[in-house]
């Protein structure tokens, strides 16, 4: 054990080296004059925090990649992620934020598939929508004819060439859905925070919902939208009522 005194920055650089696994713990422990087994506790805990963030925020994606079984492939992937993408935000959940992009860079090498990337992006979108600090304007709980309409400000419309919404919904129900192996037709997914519960939600877009969203986005009246689409006004109102009921569109109070 050395008794050499280190100044504050040098000490913190030593600790940084140890907890990031940039040097063997026993080497850093000797430099700091601390017990190596005790120093290793910090390395394990800090690694655990990132793993927990990944498995909490990207639960389906990490499960598909073998996190639950701690497979060798998962452990290799995790080690690379910890080395390449250290957390840089105080919110622990953000420690998972770089994972979709990290996976995308490993598709070519065969460490992940395009579906893994898409699923990770959807799960991350749900996290960001949940955290979105935007406050919703006062609104009715149901469609009110004549009330001004606005898009839910937390809404994200995302597109992937995989049925990720159906997969994640089935996964969350514990159904063990089959993993798509090849890309298919593009699918639009609506990710938003439900006004009633304040919880994040997602589902695949339907033509009727997309019609309602475009109508509100473009500020069209029911009559204009009916004329432009060739639908009866009742059908337009029904589409709007469904979008409001789901919380995608707000009927402002």
């Amino acid at each position: 054990m050395t008794t050499e005194r280190t100044d504050l920055e040098a000490l913190q650089r030593h600790m940084h080296t140890a907890v990031k696994g940039l040097a063997p713990v026993h080497v850093v422990a000797a430099a700091l004059g601390v017990d190596a087994k005790r120093l290793a506790i910090y390395h394990r805990m800090i690694r655990h925090h990132v793993v927990a963030a990944l498995q909490t925020r990207l639960g389906a994606t990490t499960a598909l990649l073998g996190a639950g079984e701690e497979t060798p492939a998962w452990e290799r992937l995790l080690a690379a992620y910890l080395a390449d993408c250290p957390p840089s935000h105080w919110a622990l959940g953000h420690a998972a934020g770089a994972f979709p992009g990290f996976l995308a860079e490993r598709v070519e090498a065969g460490d992940a598939t395009g579906f893994h990337v898409a699923l990770a992006e959807l799960e991350w979108a749900l996290y960001t929508v949940n955290r979105d600090a935007t406050r919703l304007p006062p609104h009715h709980r149901a469609y009110v004819e004549g009330a001004p309409l606005a898009l839910n400000p937390t809404l994200q419309i995302l597109e992937w060439p995989y049925p990720v919404a159906a997969f994640l919904a089935a996964f969350n129900r514990g159904e063990g859905p089959a993993v798509p192996t090849a890309p298919g037709d593009p699918e639009l997914v609506l990710v938003f925070r439900r006004p009633a519960s304040g919880n994040p939600y997602f589902h695949a877009a339907t033509p009727a919902l997309l019609f309602a969203l475009k109508m509100v986005h473009d500020g069209l009246t029911v009559a204009d939208a009916a004329a432009a689409s060739g639908q009866p006004a009742e059908a337009v109102q029904a589409a709007l009522a469904d979008a409001v009921q789901q919380g995608l569109v707000l009927a402002l109070a």
């Binding site: 005194r5 280190t6 100044d7 504050l8 000490l11 913190q12 650089r13 600790m15 940084h16 907890v19 990031k20 910090y42 805990m45 800090i46 925090h49 990132v50 250290p86 957390p87 840089s88 935000h89 105080w90 622990l92 420690a95």
Partner: peptide, 25 residues
């Protein structure tokens, strides 16, 4: 404690040394 340094968040509480320099800081 220090829970971040050099651009990395540790999400854990690392001890500061009980020195005059650390105290001033």
């Amino acid at each position: 404690c220090f829970s971040s340094a050099f651009g990395v968040e540790y999400h854990d509480l690392l001890p500061v040394p009980f020195t005059a320099e650390a105290l001033d800081h």
